[in-house]
Amino acid sequence: MKWIPYGPGAVMLHFADKLGEKAFLRCQTILAELEQHPPYGLLEVVPAFTRILLEFDRNLVPDALAIIPHLEAQLKAAAKVKLPRMPVKEVSVIYDGPDLERVAELNRLTVPEVCRRHAATTYKVYMLGFSPGFPYLGDLDRRLHTPRLPVPRPRIPEGSVAIGGEHTGIYTIESPGGWNIIGRILEPIYDPSRGSALSGEEAMFLLRPGDRVKFVPVRDRRASA
């Protein structure tokens, strides 16, 4: 564990060097511990692949760095969580993105091979971020790893399926972005009209960390009509 200063009232915990299954489990263990026994003054926790941000109420905890020894002791003693095997959620996709050729060329594959390989993997949601409900999915077939575009696009349509480095993901809202767009999903995975304060507003996010996801290619009916 390494603690990184990140401005007043906050500290960032570096809990893994490499992303992957082990880091994910470690992250879930830390999150569970912080949720069940929240340290005094903790306001919000933001998890990512290898680091977790802890933000405190600055009136209650003026110097977050001062409580690191306490946090470290608590997290070291935390019981490891066991995650249930999550069901596979299927997401229908049409592979017709503008960067299919680029992904194929850079990886010396044909376009149909790119699509086949992308749909063959059962992915795991490592984290949500970037935009509401945007899933960072791994582990992507090594032959599909593709660097981000040299110049990000100013506008990527909602529902775009894309590859960025060693991850694949889904743009949940229209936004700028530099990932390679290979397709689009048919049903939104982020829908603010789903769920309510009463029933649980997290229902607006279809995918959650730990979920398993499979892309199911469909033919574009409009194209064949």
Partner: peptide, 11 residues
């Protein structure tokens, strides 16, 4: 340098 995506605070 691209870093592994990590939390970003306002400011």
């Amino acid at each position: 340098t691209q870093i592994i995506s990590e939390p970003v605070r306002v400011g």
